[in-house]
Design a protein around this nucleic acid. Sequence first.
DNA 1: CCGTATGCTGAGAATGGTTCTCGTTTTAGC
DNA 2: GCTAAAACGAGAACCATTCTCAGCATACGG
Lengths: 145, 145
Amino acid sequence: MAPHAHPTDPSDMPLGPRQRALLAVLQAADAELSGQELHERLKQASQRHGLATVYRNLRLLQRSGLVRCRKLTNGESVYAPLERDDHHLTCVSCGHSEPLPICPVATGGLGLTKVLLQGFKPLFHTFEIHGLCRSCQQSEPLAHG
Amino acid sequence: MAPHAHPTDPSDMPLGPRQRALLAVLQAADAELSGQELHERLKQASQRHGLATVYRNLRLLQRSGLVRCRKLTNGESVYAPLERDDHHLTCVSCGHSEPLPICPVATGGLGLTKVLLQGFKPLFHTFEIHGLCRSCQQSEPLAHG
DNA sequence: CCGTATGCTGAGAATGGTTCTCGTTTTAGC
DNA sequence: GCTAAAACGAGAACCATTCTCAGCATACGG
């Protein structure tokens, strides 16, 4: 299967200028960015976007299959371009989360050796597939949750 | 590899009665429970626990490797006993999340056929290993985030 | 070219799950 | 029974996110 089907089909969404700006910042970033950070960076780039707009467009980008999102233990959501296929090691105690350079789905099994874990003591893992459920594929992308 | 190493070693934590009650409710439940639901169920079982206590003990149980936690898109955290190895299909549009009876880690690759997805259109997946980082293994379980 | 409908925007308020505060209660040790 | 330490819990505080709604931009009809 193709894990990252090109999103050129969702609903022929043309991507507004604000959304392109958002995507550009995410692509330029070397790490996942939170909504607040994104808002901050746009402000610094003299691209004033309201916070509401940032979140709104982030949601649309997500539905268009261009952006992925993950929730940190502190409640913040962090975003990255879809093509970045990062996975993580997250501490249930301090919440620290660091990238894990292995994708068990892509590698077809796992090459998680003790070497990679480097002292990290795994307790459990979460695997989730995010996408569009059948009914949301039919409804307009404007429908709110 | 053993995906679910028995957690009988963490730090010889004896588990207080409140924690046992919490764990019992989770084990009796047929699905993941949020902190609020857990609080509610304990109240109904005439096990008055303050909400703060519920969350406090939930965190401790998590650090002891007895409980797993996952954040829904609406910000709620839901909990389940560690031994339950459920994974999910989550809609980025409506937030609906349903169990996915396949674990790509356990199956060593994936058996995600279109049949299983049943019309769900996958956009991206998240894989995360939760555990204790090196420094948190050394520090007391009481340390806060 | 102007008027109107539609949708996007953003400042600020509202929301709501989770965490913190801190006085009270329980437990452990003597 | 008495004191110290730990756990508890009611309510306040927190804070990322979402909602509200008036103002602005764009598209289209006349």
